[in-house]
Structures are given as C-alpha cells and as structure tokens.
C-alpha cells in the first residue's frame, strides 16, 4: 500500500513538436483556453493563481501556485494548492518522439494522512471526514473538465 503520498500520472503522445506543446503550457492565454484563467509567467519562483468558479464553503475557486522548475522546452513544475494544507506539485515533462511530443504530467503530494490535511478536511466538512468536501470537489472538477 502506498497511499500516504499518492501521485496521479497522466500522459499522452501529441503529434505536435515540443516547442508548440511548451507554448501551450507556458503562455497565459493558451493556458486559459485549455486549462484555467491564470496569471502565469514562465519565471522560476513566480507566484500565480488559476481561477475557476468557487464551491462554497469548500473551495474558493483559487488554486495558488509557484513555479519551481523551468527548463524549456522539457520540464515545468509548480506547486498546486487548492485548499489550506494542500501541498501538491504538478510537474510536466516533454519528450520529443519522432515529430511529436510525449507529454507526462505528474500531480503528486496527495497526502491525506497528514495531520494538517486531516484537520482541514474535517473542519471543512463539519466532522464528516471529508466526504461532503470530496463529493463537492468531485462535482466541480467534473464540471470544470467539461
């Protein structure tokens, strides 16, 4: 069992070269089109937010981020904090394959067993052990995704 620090890995091979995929990942307007409205700037240490519709009282609609890795056109990483106590990291890796790009996204640091997370979950969900919040977040993420 390795649930204490679970990561989500998503990968796809696009038929577009790395420089185009990199631009889609690092251009604020492009990001707004396919991910979320943001004030991203490709600078190490830059703090920015992604914004979407809030889901009161669980989620204020703001994801706080900070660029932690930047190596064009290969690696990009930023912290991803969607709620107090959430300290996850989103890391993008681009690999050129033929004329296309293998894009790998690893979203790590989902530590539900950490005390601070547990407290957040419980306070946000009125002692329901996070069920209501998880359900609400599931809804908003599903809706966002459409």
């Amino acid at each position: 069992m390795s649930r204490t620090d679970s990561a989500i890995r998503t990968e796809t091979l696009y038929r577009h070269p790395p420089h185009r995929v990199w631009r889609a990942l690092t251009d604020s307007d492009a990001l707004a089109t396919w991910l979320m409205p943001n004030d991203f700037v490709p600078e190490l240490g830059h703090r920015f937010t992604f914004r979407t519709q809030p889901v009161p009282p669980y989620f204020d609609g703001v994801v706080h981020c900070e660029v932690t890795e930047l190596e064009p056109p290969k690696t990009l990483a930023y912290t991803w904090c969607g709620m107090p106590g959430m300290n996850t990291v989103v890391r993008w890796e681009l690999t050129e394959i033929d004329d296309g790009t293998l894009l790998v996204c690893t979203h790590s640091g989902f530590d539900l067993t950490e005390e601070s997370h547990l407290k957040t979950f419980r306070s946000m969900s009125g002692g329901w052990g996070g069920r209501k919040m998880v359900a609400a977040l599931d809804r908003v993420l599903t809706e966002l995704a459409v």
């Binding site: 989500i8 796809t12 989902f110 998880v134 599931d138 995704a145």
Partner: peptide
C-alpha cells in the same frame, strides 16, 4: 475518490 477526481480532471484537460 479525491485522487480519482483529479485523475479525471487531468485526463479531460489533456
């Protein structure tokens, strides 16, 4: 469930 929410989120974003 929480992880799966994000998994679906990223799949759709891809």
């Amino acid at each position: 469930l929480w992880l799966r929410s994000y998994q679906r989120f990223w799949q759709t974003k891809f």
